[in-house]
Design a protein around this nucleic acid. Structure first.
Lengths: 164, 164
DNA sequence: TGACTAAAGGATAAGAAAGTCTTTTACTGG
DNA sequence: CCAGTAAAAGACTTTCTTATCCTTTAGTCA
């Protein structure tokens, strides 16, 4: 239903959302825990950075972190970051958009269904994902706060340095 | 959303559904009208025949016809004939079914959405498609009955002969 | 500065999906 | 039976997606 890169992106981001705030996480840690080929993950993370969903820091102690609080990142943003804006706009029966040359047979019911999907993706945020994952992981202590390893601020437009 | 072969199948079948009952339609006529590569269409038609959605007849005057009345063929049948039974069973986040090892984060809302999709596909039949297509094609006379060119009955299990 | 670390980026490979081509099989009509 | 027609079948090519590899760039730490 969702493409492979897309589910990788969702899983990677929700892994990041589970990390203590301020921590930088390396691609290797993510790919290890989420069982995603590392070099492929790197490209996906790059896309996500370009779409401003995460920030990256090079060099020793570098890594990735969410660019927004988890409750501000919904599934639709992720899907669109990976698949591009075009997703969900087409029609069932033909390649082209069908509104242009008269509606296709299923247009209305399909559109309705599609809107529900988009709405679903828009509603579900990273916190929702994390909540369920952590609840399952054990009935353990939830999101114990942990001393941030580093505090950083954004210095470049895309790539930023990892200095305090 | 639907795979290419799948939309081809839907279009080909709905084209057949628009033909006068009893008429046999060649693959070339279908591929011409529906703008589908002919040799690729043949494979798809073969699948549909194997799944008993249409019948085929070799030799001069041969061709394809629906194996069921159009109102008995819904989109789900077509999709499953092409994609196999497995479609729609997976989970968003992981490849495997997630019910097996504990539900994934989005499982419930996703399942609900999925059911709506399946239900939609189950409800829409070829007549529904044809109705809309014909309404658009002109406001012309609808489904004027036309003398059947040939009457045939099924003689083999899969392939059948085109004799009266 | 030099050794090290980690992301960025590009070139390339592996695999699946989509599409083509050619031969074979089955039937019709004369 | 023979010539013609149309589907069946399978080998093959192309294209796109997914994944890997390797070099470059940017930073840290001693």
């Amino acid at each position: 239903m969702l493409s492979r890169p897309c589910t990788y992106a969702i899983r990677a981001l929700s892994y990041l959302a589970m990390q203590p705030p301020g921590k930088l996480t390396g691609s290797r840690e993510i790919s290890g825990h989420e069982d995603i080929p590392n070099s492929f993950l790197c490209k996906i993370l790059l896309d996500l950075r370009r779409k401003r969903l995460l920030r990256s820091y090079k060099g020793t102690g570098g890594g990735y972190e969410l660019a927004l609080p988890p409750e501000k990142i919904n599934l639709l943003m992720i899907v669109q970051a990976i698949e591009g804006e075009v997703s969900f706009s087409g029609c069932i029966l033909e390649d082209k958009e069908c509104s242009a040359h008269g509606e296709c047979a299923l247009h209305h019911s399909w559109l309705e269904l599609r809107n529900q999907l988009v709405n679903f993706l828009e509603t579900q945020t990273l916190v929702d994902l994390v909540r369920t994952r952590q609840a399952r992981r054990k009935k353990g202590p939830k999101a114990r706060y942990q001393e941030p390893v580093q505090i950083k601020d954004q210095m470049g437009d895309l790539s930023v340095k990892a200095s305090a």
